[in-house]
Structure formats: structure tokens, C-alpha cells
Design a protein around this nucleic acid. Sequence first.
DNA 1: AGTCAAAAAT
Length: 772
Amino acid sequence: MSWIHVQHHPSLSPSNPPPPRLAAAAATNSKYANFSQIPSWVSLKSTSSSFVKTTPPLQQGRVENLHLVSLSKQGKLKEARVFLEQMDEAGVYVTPHSYESLLETCRNLRSLAEGRYIHDRMRRRTVKNPSGFLENCVLRMYCDCGSLVDAQTMFDEMAERNLGSWVVIMSAYAEAGFFDKSFWLFSDMLVLGIEPTSMIYTGLLKCLVNPSLVEIGRQLHSRVIRSGLSSNVAINTALCNMYVKCGWFEGAKLVFDQMDEKDSVAWTGLMVGYTQAGKPEDALDLFVKMVMEGVKLDQYVFSIVLKACAGFEDLNLGRQIHSYIVKLGLETDVSVGTPLVDFYVKCVNFEYACRAFERISEPSDVSWSAMICGFSQIGKFDESIKIFKSLRNNSLVLNSFIYTSIFQACSALADFNLGAQAHADAVKRSLISHLYGDSALVSMYSKCGRLDYATQAFESIAAPDTVAWTAIISGNAHHGNASEALRLFRTMQDCGVRPNVVTFVAVLTACSHSGLVVEAKHYMDTMRSQYLVDPTIDHFNCMIGIYSRAGLLQEAYELIKSMPFDPDKTSWKCLLGGCWTHKNLELGEIGAANLLQLDPEDTAAYVLLFNLYASSGKWEEAAGVRKMMTEKNLKKELSCSWITVKGKVHRFLVGDKHHPQTEEIYSKLEEFDQTLMNNENGLLTEEDDVSYTFPERKQQLLVHSERLAMAFGLISTPTNTPIIIFKNLRACEDCHEFAKHLSDISGRRIVIRDACRFHHFLSGQCSCNDYW
DNA sequence: AGTCAAAAAT
């Protein structure tokens, strides 16, 4: 809630914040009086001076009341209270307008205590109050502050209720879901012979928001007809919206079609309904009709039409509507510009999104969050974070969507430091979106190598949904805790949460990393029949990977041939990977051939095939593969490893000597020199550069990037913390052995995240049991 | 008087 307060603070206007210097200047020019500016000759202490005595009594409190209103508009209720007491002491009259302003602030800030105080002092003195206006303000204050009990007491005690009083309390009950209460009041009204106005009806109708309430809606509708209000635009619009929200589109259409007077509001409401019901095409049809009937188009119309468009991801259609928006000069409007940005982001056209954003005159937090999303989508997570930081530094309004995006960005960058800070920050501002933010956090901590934090985050979710369960299952899967992942999968079902497509990917991933062939096959076979989830190619690829890794290469190949999908790159790569591990040249050649047909530039395919030939002693073929690579001028992905120490990322390449502590790192590595494994067969690892000759490669092995990172971790982090290293490619066998050994001698816990999973090394053992 | 815009897990 805290950020809402900011919105009411004039000098921190959310949409267009002046830089600090300007803000200070603006404050002194503020249209509201500032206490320090009140000249001493009218200030409270001088009420006894001869000048004031000659001024008429009402005139006397003008500046004080102005100051009071100023304080309340700035949300300074505590100060206002002190000032009120000073005014009392000085015998200065508080005007109805001041009370109105104070009550409004109490409402906006949901400050029941201050509201009660104001009400209390109003009762203790005579306030000039024409037609019970102020009493309705108090009533609304109680309703908006959530105290229906106080509101009811007030209502019962009111000497002079007017229609406004009825509207306020009935709407409040309806909004809070106490429909019986509001309908009792409704019948009270009728009994008292008070004829309900359109306000009464619209107040009630707008609270009927789900299908279970449609009957009440129909009854109200019939009363509307009987009371002769059926041509009232506001009521008809409200009826139409009510039926839409209650899911009765036929009813909505009926009301809509017989309206003889329809403005853009009525059209908008119907379009909202269609869009929310997943019928964007109907919404667009309505838009076309609107245009043909010449209805005036406003920013609301375009915001919903753009949302409908985003559902289609039809760039062309959106461009046409965009040009319409430009013609009408509405592109600078934040409520048109923002959905426009979002539309382009959804169409994966970030350039257009940027241009649309630039045109918005006063971007809101929603506009910024659309941009953050856009940057993340094109992989520019640093840019997302940059925006986030600058919004924060400028005290602009942040929201839970933004935090969710930041958690995602930190996941992708595996930035534990920033992620944990953003987490704490979001907690302080209570801006963690239920389920959305929670799941993103689970995933973030898991991807940062902290499954312990991920588990904590998961356990703090009151009622995890499918996505949240999937996140924690997937986390355990990637950290190699297959049995825990499968246990969670069962618990999830015991909790009545149903697994979906992604959940099964996570479950199969868990099996895959632990070689649970039988279990995987069981889930594969039952996911459709028992769980009603149709397997996708991702599931088949997981299964192919599981067979291949387990050495069941024939089974893997049969599955590729028999599965109901055309095999893709991943399918063949899984097979090829298994063929390399289990030295099956025949199937390996088939895998490589198919893979290279789908992607002739796939470096990993060449490396695997090269190794496969080399290990079978087929040097000529191996040389051929290498020649092909050189001919194609294939630049393989540069291998690197990184480690974060004190918030700073240290990145290493093979044989890197750029680090300022290079000497220490290399001498640390030499300490472990004798533990090096023999790699006499001259095989390539993914890390190696193929253009090197054999002796150089062997030399390279000693200084693989992850070893440099490990050595640096060893000398620069406290001994009681795990050394967490990330690398962009798969762990090479030799370095894996090295890490095991290092964990044994140093007693340190080492965590390495390679391209496909986490390895936890402790006391000479790896959590993957050498199966990866 | 009634209408608007965004997000999580492979």
C-alpha cells in the first residue's frame, strides 16, 4: 500500500517527477499555502493583535483553513491534527470545506483513526452543514476505510438522510459482497416510498461481477423496467456490463441492441467483456461497427481494442489501428500508448514498441513495466535492470509486475545478489505478486544455485498453484534431487493441484538427471491416460535423452522414428550425445547426419562427431569433420565461467590471464597439479578450441575456465560459504573430476552450474553421481 | 453515470 501514498503527494507526482532541484523549486511555488509562508500578522499567535480584532470573524480564519486544506492535500494528517488543535485554542473556525478535504484524504489514505477523529470533533461542535453534505462525506469515509460497522451506525443516527446517503452505504455493502445487506436496504427504501435513482441502480449493478449473481442482476433489471428507467443510458450500460461480467453475453447483447442511445462507454464495456472471455475477434467486430456507425472513439476504446489485438499477435492489424490512433492524436495518451507498447512487445517487435513508448507524454508504471518486459524478451536483461534502478532512484511508482520481471531478469543472469536485494525491496513495499512473483522467486533462487532459498520461498506460498509447484519440482530436478522432485510431484497431487505440460517436463527432467528410466517411462505412458495431459515433442525429447544417456540407444532411435512428431534438432542431439557417451558410431553417424541437415552450423554436432570418430580410431573421418568445420568457418560459442564475489562478477575464459589476481590463481591451481587426470587420448572437450594441436590442447585443459573460477573462488571467499560457479557450456569430464578432488582436499562445498544442470561437490562426491 | 492498459514454471 505504501506506494499509493506516494501518488497523493504532490511533489512526488508519479507520472512526471521533476528532478530534485526542480521539485524543490516547485514546492515553494505550490498553489497550496505553506505554514512557513503564512505572514506573522495573521498567524495563530497574533489573533489577539489589534489588527485581527478589526477583521470579520470568518475572514479571520481564511489563511489557517487554507493551510489546513494544504496539509490534507499533501496527506499530512498528523500535522493537520496538531494544527486543528492549535486552531481550536486560538478559537479559529474550521470551514466545511476544510472538513470535506480532510475526510477525502482520510478516505484516500484509508486512515480510519484520523477519520474517526475528524468525525468526533465535528460532532462536538456546530458545523455549518447545508443539506447533510458533510455527513455523507463522513459516511463515505467510513465505507472507504473499510469500517461498515461505523458506517451503519452513522447511517442509523443520521437525522437527514438523502439519496446520496443511501447510494453510499448500499454500494459499500454490495462492493464488499454483502448483497443481502444492500438489498435489505433497497427494500427499506421502497417501503419508505423513496424512488431509487439511476445512481442506486448503477451502484448495485456494478458489484454483480460473477455468474452466481446473474439472478440478482435479472431481478434488478426487471425493477428497472417497471420503474420506467429502461431508456437511461447509464443504467443500460451498467446492465450490459453486469451481464457481461456474469458471463451472460446473450443478455448483454439484448440490452445493448435495444439501446437507442449508445455512447462509446457502452461499446467499450461490451468489448471488455468479449476480450476477457477470450473472444477478441468479437471485440474487434464491435470496433469495426463502431467505426462504421461513426461513434466517437476515445482512449478507452483504443486501450481495449489494442488488448484484443495483442491476443491475435497480428502485427498488421495493430499497425492499422495504430495509424488511426495517430490520426486522432491519441498516441501521446498514456492509456493508449501503454497498451500499444504492450501490443508491439507481444508481437516481438521491440523497435516499434520503443517508438510507441517514446510518444507517450507521461509514461506510467504500467508503461515502464511493458518496456522492462520488452527488454527482457530480447534478452537485454541488463537494460531491464537499468530501468528498474532508475525508476527506484527517482522515487517513481513501482508495481508488482515490475518486480516479477526483475526476478526473471535475475534468474536469467543468475544474479543472486541483485535478486535477493530486489526480493527484500519488494517485501518492504509489499509488491510481491501472489503466485506470479512467488513463482518467479522460487525459480530465481533455484537458478542462482540456492535451492535452499528456493525451497523457503516455495514454502512461504500459502496455496501454491500448478506453476509454483512446477517451479520447485523443476528446481529440484536441475539440482539433481530426483527423489525429492518426485515426492513433491506426489504431494502436489495430494493437495489437489493438477500437473500440466510443463510439470511433466520438470518431472521427466528429474528422471533424466538421475537415470530413472523406468520411472520416466511410467510417467510418459500415464501422463495422457491418468493426468489428461497430452505429451508434446518436449516430453518425447526428454525421453529420448533419458534412453540415450542410459545407453538404451536403440530404444531412443526407435522412439524418434515412432513418435507422433517430426524429430527436431533436440531429438537428434539427445541421441548423438548418448552415442558419444556410449561410443556407438553407427547410430551416432545417423544422429549427426540428421542434426546437421536441420542445422549445418551446429558446432556441438561437429565436436561430438569428431570425438566419436577419434575414439574409434577413425582418424581420417575425424580429420574430415574438422576440415568441414574450418571450411564453414564455424566460430563456436566462446566458453566461459564466472563467479560472483562481493557483488562483482569475475568472468574467465580458457587460459585467461586478464584477471588482476592471475598469479595467485595460477599458483593455486599448481597446488593441485598432481591431481590432474590423464587425457592422453587427445579428445576434444566442448571447451577446447579445435584449431589447437594436441599438446596445446592438453596444456589448455589445465587452465579451463571453470578451474580458474574455482581457484579464484578458493582464494577470495570465506571458507564457510559454498563456491558457486556458472559456466555456459557443459562440464567437461576432467574438470568434473578436478572439482570433486578439490572439494575433498579443501573441504569446501562447490556448486557448478553447467549448461544443463547443477553439480554439488562435497567431500570428493558430486550430487550427479557422475551421471550427467 | 458508465468504460482502460501489464506478469509466473520448460
